[in-house]
Amino acid sequence: MAEKEKGRQEGSPIPNDGVWRDAAESKAPLLKLQAARLTRRCAISLAMASIVAPLFHGDAV
């Protein structure tokens, strides 16, 4: 049976060769989705929802 990546016995960390990092472009669709949800829930404009969405959902920088 092949050794699994999670269960390494010698305790060495799993390499991050195949892991992709988040880019700024990947956050724009999330902001649009969150703003659209706020417009439905709170009956506010899309412009106001796009400003408030990072604060409301906890993604404020």
Rank of each mutant, 00 (worst) to 15 (best):
D22G: 14
L31I: 15
D17R: 04
A36D: 14
M48N: 15
V52S: 01
H57P: 04
S12F: 15
R40V: 06
P29G: 09
G7R: 12
M48E: 12
P13V: 03
D22T: 13
D22E: 15
L30Y: 11
L30R: 12
S26Q: 05
K32A: 10
A35F: 00
V19A: 13
Q9C: 04
A36G: 11
I14T: 13
V19N: 10
G18A: 12
V19R: 13
L46Y: 08
R40F: 01
A24P: 10
P15T: 09
L31C: 07
R8D: 00
P13S: 09
A24V: 07
I51K: 13
F56K: 13
A28D: 06
V52N: 05
R37M: 15
A47Q: 13
A43D: 09
E10T: 07
G58Q: 12
Q9R: 07
I44Q: 00
I14G: 00
R8V: 05
M48S: 11
Q34T: 11
L55T: 14
A36F: 02
C42L: 14
W20R: 14
K6D: 09
K32M: 08
V52D: 07
M1C: 10
R40C: 02
S26N: 08
K27H: 04
A36V: 04
R8C: 02
G18K: 11
A47Y: 00
G11F: 02
T39I: 02
N16P: 05
L46K: 09
G18H: 03
Q34F: 00
R41K: 15
A49K: 05
K4E: 15
G58L: 02
K27A: 12
A36T: 06
P15W: 10
R41P: 03
L33R: 13
C42N: 06
